[in-house]
Amino acid sequence: MSTARKHGDSHSISKELIVQNKLGIHARPSAMFVKTASRFECDIFVTKEEKRESEKIVVNGKSIMGLMMLAAGPGCKLLVRAEGADALKAIEELENLLRRKFDED
């Protein structure tokens, strides 16, 4: 929280994260992602990297159905963008979650 405050009130941070667990972002990881994201004030948006720009969809990182809709399988690149005071902390936690492979595998 303290790190975020140093950066001022409103700012946007983006980070590219890679899905590392074997089954991808299915229901349980989605729920974990959403639970983590919901703890923060900032808005969180997630996009999956697609070959064609037209196929890209941006979903709310606090919505289970949204995240599941991405169908982000293992190896997929996700672009996570956080906007708000605690954006930095939020990104850190979400990155940690993906690195931990959602405590799966």
Binding site: L23, G24, H26, A27, M68, A71, A72, G73
Partner: peptide, 19 residues
């Protein structure tokens, strides 16, 4: 409904593997 949707999702993401 949740596990059925999940099966569908996992099948799509992994190309056949299931839980």
């Amino acid at each position: 409904p949740a596990s059925e949707l999940n099966q569908r999702l996992i099948a799509k993401m992994t190309g056949g593997k299931t839980l």
